[in-house]
Nucleic acid binder design. Sequence first.
DNA 1: GTTAGCATGTAAGGAGTTACATGATTTT
DNA 2: AAAATCATGTAACTCCTTACATGCTAAC
Lengths: 215, 215
Amino acid sequence: MRGRSDVLEPAILGLLHESPMHGYELRKRLNLVLGSFRALSYGSLYPCLKGLVERGWIVGLESTDSGHGVSKRARIVYQLTADGKEHLQQVLSSSGPSTWEDENFDVRFAFFAQTDAETRLRILEGRRTRLTERLETVRQSFARTRERMDEYTLELQRHGLEQVEREVRWLDGLIDNERGRRRVRPTGTGHPTDADSTAAVPQSTPARTTEKERG
Amino acid sequence: MRGRSDVLEPAILGLLHESPMHGYELRKRLNLVLGSFRALSYGSLYPCLKGLVERGWIVGLESTDSGHGVSKRARIVYQLTADGKEHLQQVLSSSGPSTWEDENFDVRFAFFAQTDAETRLRILEGRRTRLTERLETVRQSFARTRERMDEYTLELQRHGLEQVEREVRWLDGLIDNERGRRRVRPTGTGHPTDADSTAAVPQSTPARTTEKERG
DNA sequence: GTTAGCATGTAAGGAGTTACATGATTTT
DNA sequence: AAAATCATGTAACTCCTTACATGCTAAC
């Protein structure tokens, strides 16, 4: 009944740690953080917020005014409680198998700035291992069945493998970077793009884990 | 209650059109066809097969022997009925908006060998348009919010955009190919791999849509 | 003879979606 | 004054997973 997502909850807590927000705004930010640009629905968001309030990790405060003068319609601005902050830090310091799964990895990565260096490295390496394992399995069944497959299926498989291989190389770059070797991102054949600027990941961003407050 | 997937059903029908199979085998093949290598569970597969039988699109025949002599344990080999074949052809000739969504595209592509050329082109172009639209939206919000984002979030976004850009270029190659221009796949920086062979998509595979049988 | 893999299923539940319902505020 | 977009929510439903239950067959 109540949505206890393992993806949504950390994402909401992480965003609210950066700054308090109301649901509608949260949703838009969430859509960028949550993997591949999919649109989260209110039907998931609001019940999840409700659950977080019930567990005492966030509180919702009515706000008629929101800074720039004119009184807008009443909206509920959510923010972390002391318990919520503590819980978030606990979540952010975890690095078990679930963190390197497809659904969870992106969200964890999105909040790496709030994660300590060791945990970052463990997650990146776990993710890398997971992907190379998968690569092995798929390559084998690919080799076994390639004669029986038509060319479209073949192309789909080949493309899928290539995508994962690229992902592994991306992780390699990030891991090297975390270790302080400052390897340059392999831009490869990538056409120049708005997005394709010099966004190299920092050598070591000081983790904000010490910011812990208690109520 | 009964699983009426829009992804699973066409995939099953498509595979059974290639050759009759029992559930266990079907699952393994399905895992390769169904996007990104995820493992489909029996809890989805068998109820879905049941539903397909109920609607008369497939039949399950007990088989104690399976070709090479020794009598194995009883398994249920499923195959398409005449109605099922008809239905499949109808599904395969559709090219509406739903076909170029993330969840559906891969499955449709996997059965392109059974799809006529016009439909193939419409799906590829629809998919391309969908992706470039998404790219535009994300690029804009990326440009608007990049100052406020930490470097990890930035890197995640950049990587996400790059992935989609690459996907668009892949589609460009396929579209050119469908039009008979036989453009060579841009191998780029891709390391040589088992998968990275000469799997160029055919110029034009004759569609088997004329194979239609009636009961 | 016991582990691993083949083979078929069911029941309960999780994580989300769509569609609905409502109303305020801003823009055209 | 109409249309778009902001803002919050609920109910029903979908698709899928996990865990359970069962038993056969091959390999070590």
